Computed example of a mutant assay.
Amino acid sequence: MLFTKLTSCLVSLFALTACTVAVVLPSRSELESRVYPRATEPIQSGLVFTIHNVKADTVVDLSAGDNKTITGWSLNGGKNQQWTTIWTGESWNFQSVETGLYLGFTGTAGNGTNLTVASTPTAWDIWHDTVNETNYRIFAPNTTVNWDLWGYGDAISGDPITLWGAWSGIHQTWRFVQGMHSIYLLML
């Protein structure tokens, strides 16, 4: 009797583990929308972009105050708002044009983890948004957490960019704009 209950508990535990893995791993339809450097894709390795939040239209900004903090900030044309995309063969890295540091995070990828920079690259997965294919979501690999502009996408300069579980909020979607620095200087 005890053996039967123990076996039943172990089967339940393995079933729970399998369910957890199924939630984390992407489905086939999601794999088809993952971004790889190919001719039909605007995001290519070695190009420089400003990365705009779709809701707030602020950009990913490396704080000039501490050269470490990542926030959403109004576009100003600074090199601290420009990121070189680097394809590693398996994932993407984002390197600051200003400092040469890489966009990443400290600790474990989870809800509320702040983006920061480091001297070593962090792997990222870029996926097309399922609602608007011209927008992107950027995930910590093999997780369901993606970039999220704090405050549901407030357009206030200085709002932190964190990791958060993916849901339908457009403040978790991003646009990549190439050559924005040159365009900004022409407007001055």
Rank of each mutant, 00 (worst) to 15 (best):
V21F: 14
L115M: 06
L75E: 13
Q44C: 06
W164K: 05
V11N: 02
L163P: 09
A118Y: 10
W83A: 03
N111K: 15
H128G: 06
S182D: 15
V145A: 03
Y136P: 02
S45H: 10
A56K: 09
W83G: 03
L6F: 13
Y184S: 08
V59Q: 02
T108R: 14
N142E: 08
R38N: 12
N146H: 07
Y102S: 11
L185D: 10
Q95L: 10
A109D: 04
L16F: 10
L101N: 14
S96V: 07
P42H: 09
V35L: 08
W83N: 01
G72A: 13
S63Q: 12
N114Q: 09
F176C: 07
Q95G: 09
K68C: 05
G72Q: 05
W147A: 03
G77N: 05
L101D: 12
T162N: 13
F139N: 03
C9W: 05
Q82N: 12
A123N: 13
W127V: 11
L149G: 02
L6N: 13
W150M: 10
L6W: 12
L186S: 15
W92V: 01
V48D: 06
D57I: 06
T120H: 11
S45N: 10
I43P: 00
D159H: 11
L31I: 07
A123C: 01
K79T: 14
I51S: 01
A22V: 07
L6P: 06
L62R: 06
T173P: 00
L6K: 15
T108N: 13
W147N: 03
G78C: 04
Y136M: 07
K55W: 05
S168Q: 12
N76E: 06
S91T: 07
I86Y: 09
T84M: 14
V59N: 02
T162A: 03
S12V: 03
A39C: 00
